[in-house]
Amino acid sequence: MLPRPFTYHRPTSLDNAVALMARHVDDVSPYAGGTELLLAMKMHFADYEHLVDLKRIPDLCAIARNGDTLSIGALATHAAIATDAVIQEALPALAGLCGSIANARVRAAGTIGGNLCFAEPRADPPVLLSALDAELCLISVRGERRVAAGRFITGTLETTRAPDEILLRIEVPLKARTVRYERVVHGHRTVAGAAAVIEHDASAAPRIWLGCVATHPVALPNAETYVAANPGVLDNALTQAIASDIAPLNIADDEDAGADYRRHLAETVTIRAIAGTVQQEVRAS
């Protein structure tokens, strides 16, 4: 199917883009790689009167390390992140994940910012970025604001992005930490994904997030508490803590997996992510 007709704007400066978003706030979407937006518009699942193409704005795809912060421009493609030398060195888990999203064409077109803003429940990067305690920087005519990645997505295709806001960049703190993302994929879609981040500073709490199973990524507080108190321990009590976090989640059947199976996979990938950090720490020591 074809998308319904819309008005296409191609600003070449951020100021112009912000102004266009404000002017057309009633029916506008930022447009980046289009891998999700255009698909939704082709299916007439989403319609916008105005698209503001961000791809010709300089520097929005920049990737840089500034001291202890990794800054990833919202327009950086999955392929760019996967092959970026800075990210491969500083955050190999993110480079590896972005190098295995969907297929080569989606990785060449799709952007990390679009992935976050579209908030597809099966998207992997928001899970890992939430566990990494990344911050998102957004801009509108009202100025810039920052929001934690873990608080940005609030439901299926729902975020706290205001209709006229543009995601500028993602900032990931680079600390001494062990990071692991584990997932189970059916076809090209993830049916359960979990991220575990263990801080080497023992006073900092571990962060364990689960996604691709319910409406949006969630922290697993019981698992985090257990791992904090019992570092490196992989036992039945850990499994029970994870299960108690997963029990209240609203997990539904879909075409890829039944709810019971997905619940089982959610526990499995979470244990694998935590176990993966333990293995990595053993290997490093």
Partner: peptide
């Protein structure tokens, strides 16, 4: 770069 021309 390889692209899906159906969704571009």
């Amino acid at each position: 770069r390889p692209m899906s021309s159906c969704t571009m």
